[in-house]
Simulated assay, not measured.
Amino acid sequence: MSDFDAQPGRTPDPDLTVAQREADDVDLHAGLSGVAGLVAGGSGVVDLLGHVAEFAAQAIPGVDGAGVSVIDMSDDTPSVTAWAVTAQFVEDIDRLQYLLFREGPCVTCMQTRRPAVSGSLGSDSRWPRFGGGVARMGVHSALALPLLVGDQLVGAINTYAHSRDAFGAHAVELGSQFAGPAAVSVHNAQLLDHAQARTKQLQSALTTRAAIDQAVGIIRSRSGIDADEAFDRLVRMSQAENIKLHVVAERLVDEAVRRAKARKQI
């Protein structure tokens, strides 16, 4: 049996026929094939999360709606930075979980790094505020799965069902099989997104540095001072006008270019 955190006092595991298990295996295979076909960089992180959520809803039996979240581990407490869902009611639920109550199956599964299951959210003592709000929306079952790459937690899958006791050990087992490859896809997308952002920052820094160097050269040519003195003068201009240094530099360079063009036209 899969290792997971079940709702206290409520651990039903309905009997499944051979045909049901075979059908579930087919759906799991289809979901895994879909995740395997995702290419990081082909779309943004949020779009990829949306695809993973759709495949999760296909791969895990009993799901009426699913969501996938990614987290930031830079602080002691993991914080959700982005998520995508397959249905509006999942969006509404996860807003309660992440932004209002800060409790729920996903929060718990990220803390314990184990799947969390509830078959009657309205009576689940683990999340009294969250569970009651979700039950009033007509959603009674939840299964949350951590997304782990080795020992690193990168996010979680949230699945919900309108019926009670929708997720037993069988659903947890299939969900856990799906979560492994899904975590790799999500993690790769995060790494690529961070690399692309870093590349843009470096390109911007190089452009900024070039403008500052050109401005220093212009000041030196006009005043005959050395590079350090020219840079200090540029800094004082920035401070006096309360404008960023690279903006002052770009403005100075643009002005020099306009003057040069005007002289050519004379």
Score class of each variant (00 low, 15 high):
L99M: 07
L28P: 04
S43N: 08
A23T: 01
Q111I: 14
D24K: 00
K264I: 02
T17F: 08
K200E: 15
A66V: 03
A197T: 11
R251M: 09
A195L: 09
Q177V: 06
F55Q: 10
A53C: 11
G42F: 02
Q111E: 15
V186L: 07
F130E: 05
I225W: 07
A189D: 11
A262D: 10
D15G: 11
G41M: 07
H29T: 15
C106M: 09
V172G: 06
A210S: 05
F55N: 10
S125M: 09
D15C: 06
N188K: 10
A256I: 00
D15W: 10
V85R: 05
S163M: 10
L202P: 00
E91N: 07
D254I: 06
R114K: 15
I219S: 14
T159M: 03
G119V: 09
G65C: 15
D165C: 02
A84H: 04
Q20K: 03
Y98G: 08
P115E: 13
D27C: 05
R259D: 14
S33E: 04
F55Y: 15
R222L: 13
D193H: 13
G50P: 03
T208V: 14
T199E: 12
S223L: 13
G180M: 13
R164T: 13
R126A: 14
G44Y: 06
S176L: 05
R114D: 00
L121N: 05
L147R: 07
Q203G: 04
A205Q: 15
S118N: 09
G133H: 15
G44L: 08
P78N: 06
A256K: 00
Q190M: 14
E91Q: 14
S123H: 10
R258D: 10
A179Q: 01
Q7V: 04
N188W: 02
R258G: 03
E241C: 03
D3I: 15
P12C: 05
L202V: 08
S125H: 12
V248E: 02
V18S: 12
D24Y: 06
A171H: 03
G62P: 01
V184W: 03
L234Y: 01
R102L: 11
E229K: 07
R233P: 00
S238C: 02
G168L: 11
H51P: 00
A144S: 15
D15L: 13
V63A: 08
A166R: 10
L174C: 04
V186W: 05
L252G: 12
L252Q: 08
R113C: 08
A19T: 11
L145M: 08
P181L: 05
N242D: 13
A59I: 04
P61G: 14
V117G: 02
V139E: 06
S123Q: 09
M110F: 11
H162T: 12
E91Y: 11
G180C: 02
H194W: 01
F178I: 03
G44A: 15
L96D: 04
G104Q: 08
D3R: 15
V80G: 09
V39W: 01
V63E: 01
K264E: 07
D226G: 14
I218A: 09
H51D: 06
G65M: 07
Q20M: 06
L99E: 08
L206S: 05
T11Y: 05
L153P: 01
D254L: 12
R129G: 03
V253Q: 05
G132F: 04
D13S: 13
S2P: 15
S125V: 13
S74T: 04
A161N: 09
V257D: 14
Q265V: 12
E22A: 12
L202M: 04
E54W: 10
D92V: 10
L148E: 11
C109F: 00
